[in-house]
Design a protein around this nucleic acid. Structure first.
Lengths: 120, 120
DNA sequence: TACAATACTGACATATTTGTCACTATATGG
DNA sequence: CCATATAGTGACAAATATGTCAGTATTGTA
């Protein structure tokens, strides 16, 4: 398999996937949109207060370019823009879920580790 | 949930997970070790020729610090060091698998997209 | 006229990650 | 004595990612 995408060459689906979902906040954004959809920019901001707006918009733009999400603009005032996962974006659910699950597991593991040290 | 780890605070397992497996080559390394284990440094290098040695070692060190992999040194000459996934590391299998699967899917999607344009 | 709400963009600074180059150690075989 | 193989390390450069600040547009309402 060889895919040329955005001036780069990928030899595996894995590498291609990572190039697309690897951004600092992308999994978080996708996670939000899996829970509720569509969402307006201001709503995503409220759900992810750690991300500054500029960064959030950049990540959204990249996801849109990569066709992971769609962006719908409503010509009203004040402006209204809605984001939602595309068909291929929705298929990221197992990725997000498995990451969340493993992370919870790892958190437990760290706590047990800390307990062991505390007991000694 | 609040976890303090490596001078940082995490509020979700997802964020914790991403901080640990987010490195440029970490998923690739874990993928290698899921396929075959244990592996020596030189073997991983052969499987991942795009990664330079310095970088590979750094990512291995971090994975070791995070207890995702174990490192066994054999006091022989020339030196022999073996890496393998820990128990918690092995649990990353669903993460790696789902990323690979989605990536393959996305690659197909991109090809179909390209075809559509070619047909028009 | 000024302000509010929403969804941005541009220029730039800073931080973090990644890559490169040169270097070390060791015992064996030639 | 020299080269070889393996598994590194240190110092630094470069690239990339992320964050900050200020500014734009729209139009209904006070």
């Amino acid at each position: 398999m060889t895919i040329h995408y955005k001036e780069k060459t990928f030899f595996t689906g894995k590498d291609l996937a990572l190039s697309v979902i690897g951004g600092r906040w992308k999994i978080a954004i996708i996670w939000c949109l899996l829970q509720q959809s569509p969402l307006r920019l201001s709503e995503i901001q409220r759900k992810l207060p750690e991300v500054n707006q500029r960064m959030l918009i950049r990540q959204l733009r990249e996801l849109e370019e990569d066709k992971i999400i769609t962006r719908s603009v409503y010509p009203v005032v004040p402006p209204k823009v809605e984001y939602q996962l595309s068909e291929i974006g929705l298929l990221l659910e197992p990725v997000v879920t498995s990451i969340c699950d493993w992370g919870d597991n790892f958190a437990e593991f760290l706590e047990e580790d800390a307990d062991k040290i505390a007991v000694n």
